[in-house]
Each structure stands twice: as structure tokens, then as C-alpha cells.
């Protein structure tokens, strides 16, 4: 027997497995976390047997100074890391794009390397490099005679904050560069030639042609990196553990602590939902803002 189906029906059937996957593996968890966040839930208990406390967990989150402090740090970290990654990534992309094809291939391979390293390994490498007693950086600074004794990269609050940012920039500039290389390749060669013949020197070409034509790619790359940075967890977990004190605690690492260190699933869930809402909100605002700038690519 032959079953005849209309095209939209077939399309729907093809999409169904992926759709189910998304529901089961993404949305179910979000909803479940939302439900947890409304209960006073300890990690050993079944949520159905625990008291329903309405938005008490959220109130706790918003009243906690730790929350506001970690929000401040997360925003600062995200801003600094993304901006620096854009600058470094753009530099690497431009350098790779304008050299010969052969050299460009090698540079691309070198650039992608930091991004390939698993985040937690990356954190461990930097933890060693920054280590006050055996770290390479301290050793170099002392050898050069710039300081008397190795700086306390991960225990001095200001240094710790910026060491974390530095490690993130080192790792994630590469993905920014790869993004931007794609954007650069999409600009027709004729446009550069036209600009050269039109009398534009390299800096003028970069400002007036390359950068504006790269803007749509830059905006998307910033969104991706920004969201990633807002959710940063593994780097903090491996590098500082949120310390010294709670200075380098991000929203995500705090949520993790509530879950797995303090075993407060209800409160941790409320934390997670707040982080989720903040990111969705920022992304939505950002997307609606940049839509106008995306248009000339059509």
C-alpha cells in the first residue's frame, strides 16, 4: 500500500525528531528548573514532596548582595572580554586574510588552537601560569626585574578579575577571528580594488570599506561571544573558584555553588532562571537593535 502525503505533512514529519529532541533536551529542563525554583528544595528530596514557596527563592536572590556583586562582575567581565576579543580577533583575522594563501592556512591553524583546548584544561593551564609560587608569568616578571616578588595574580582582587579576563581573551579571540575571517571572505575583491583605485590608502579603506562591510558579522560575533561570556562558568571554576572571596564569581558559578556546594536546588534554580532571563532579555534587545544594521547584506 502506498501512503500519499502532502508536502507540508512530509516536512513536518521530517522535522518531528529534531523537534522532539529540542523539547526533551532543552525545554523540559528549563520548565523543570522553573518549577524547582518555586520550591524550597534540598538536593536529597523529591520536589513534589517539598513545600511550594511561590517566589520566595527569587526574593532571596534579589536581596542577596552576592547576587548583585556577581552580576556586576559578570557584566564587567562580559564587556571587557568581548571588546578585547573583538580587537584581538579582528587584528588576527586581518593579518591572516592579507598574507599569502599558504601562510594564511598556517596562521588559521595556529589561531584556532586555543579554541580547540577544552575550557577546563585551559583554566588549569592558566592557573599554573598565574601561580604565585611556580607560575611562569611571575617568574618572567621577576627575572626581568620589573617586580621584586611574583604578583598574586589570583589572590589580589583587582589582579584576579583581570587575570580571568586575560585568560578568556586568550582563549576566545580565536573564535572571534574565525568568525571575522568568514565575514572578510564575503566581501568581494572588486570592492577593495575599487577603493584602491579610488585613491583610498589602507587606513581609509579599513575604516570606510572593510569595517562597515564587516559590521553585520561583527554584530553577530559579539552576540555569540557576549552570550557565552555572560554564562561563563568553567573558566571561573577551574581558575579562581570564584575567589578571592567572591570577587570573580559569575552568575553561573554562583548558581552552581547553590546547587552543588550548598545543595539548595530551589535557590540555585531561581538563580539559573534569573541568569537565563537576563541573557534572553539582553539578546532580544540587542537583536532588535542591530536588525537595521544587518540589512545591506540582503
Amino acid at each position: 500500500m502506498k501512503i500519499r502525503l502532502r508536502e507540508p505533512t512530509i516536512a513536518f514529519l521530517f522535522l518531528l525528531p529534531a523537534f522532539i529532541g529540542v523539547i526533551v533536551f532543552y525545554y523540559y529542563q528549563i520548565v523543570q528548573t522553573g518549577i524547582y525554583s518555586l520550591h524550597n528544595l534540598q538536593h536529597t528530596a523529591d520536589w513534589q514532596t517539598q513545600p511550594f514557596v511561590w517566589f520566595k527563592n527569587y526574593a532571596t536572590v534579589f536581596r542577596s548582595t552576592y547576587f548583585w556583586q556577581s552580576l556586576r562582575f559578570t557584566v564587567y567581565f562580559t564587556f571587557m572580554a568581548t571588546v578585547l576579543e573583538l580587537a584581538v580577533g579582528l587584528g588576527m583575522a586581518m593579518a591572516t586574510f592579507w598574507v599569502s594563501r599558504w601562510l594564511g592556512g598556517i596562521l588559521r591553524a595556529i589561531i584556532i588552537m586555543p579554541w580547540v583546548i577544552p575550557p577546563i584544561i585551559n583554566a588549569m593551564i592558566w592557573r599554573w601560569l598565574f601561580h604565585a609560587d611556580v607560575g611562569l608569568f611571575g617568574y618572567i616578571l621577576v627575572s626581568l626585574g620589573l617586580v621584586d616578588k611574583p604578583p598574586l595574580f589570583l589572590t589580589e582582587p583587582m589582579l584576579a578579575v583581570h587575570s580571568v579576563i586575560f585568560a578568556d581573551v586568550w582563549k576566545n579571540s580565536s573564535i572571534m577571528a574565525i568568525f571575522l575571517l568568514g565575514g572578510l571572505a564575503a566581501i568581494p575583491a572588486d570592492i577593495y580594488d575599487a577603493a584602491k583605485v579610488d585613491g583610498a590608502r589602507s587606513w581609509f579603506r579599513f575604516r570606510k570599506v572593510t569595517l562597515p562591510m564587516l559590521l553585520p558579522t561583527i554584530l553577530v560575533a559579539l552576540l555569540f561571544r557576549g552570550i557565552d561570556a555572560l554564562r561563563t562558568f568553567d573558566l571561573i571554576y577551574g581558575l579562581t573558584g570564584g575567589g578571592p572571596g567572591t570577587v570573580t564569581e559569575t552568575l553561573s558559578s554562583f548558581a552552581y555553588k547553590y546547587y552543588f556546594t550548598y545543595g539548595k536546588f530551589g535557590l540555585g534554580s531561581a538563580y539559573a532562571i534569573v541568569v537565563f532571563a537576563i541573557i534572553v532579555g539582553l539578546a532580544a534587545v540587542y537583536l532588535s537593535r542591530i536588525r537595521r544594521n544587518m540589512r545591506f547584506k540582503e
Binding site: 568581494p188 572588486d190 575599487a194 583605485v197 583610498a200 570606510k208 570599506v209 562597515p212 562591510m213
Partner: peptide, 28 residues
């Protein structure tokens, strides 16, 4: 090229897509 006093028209026109007609003509 930017110091040779020449102008070139390309098959693809190679207009700057992010600029208005005014800005395109004003570019050189």
C-alpha cells in the same frame, strides 16, 4: 594604485553597498 591618477569601472560595478549613491560618488 591610490597614487596613480586613474579611475576604473568594474564589470560588477563594485559599488560600496553600505553607502548611498552620494557617498559612493563622493568616495574618491
Amino acid at each position: 594604485p591610490w597614487e596613480r591618477n586613474i579611475a576604473m569601472v568594474f564589470q560588477s560595478y563594485a559599488l560600496y553597498p553600505h553607502m548611498t549613491v552620494f557617498d559612493n560618488i563622493a568616495f574618491p
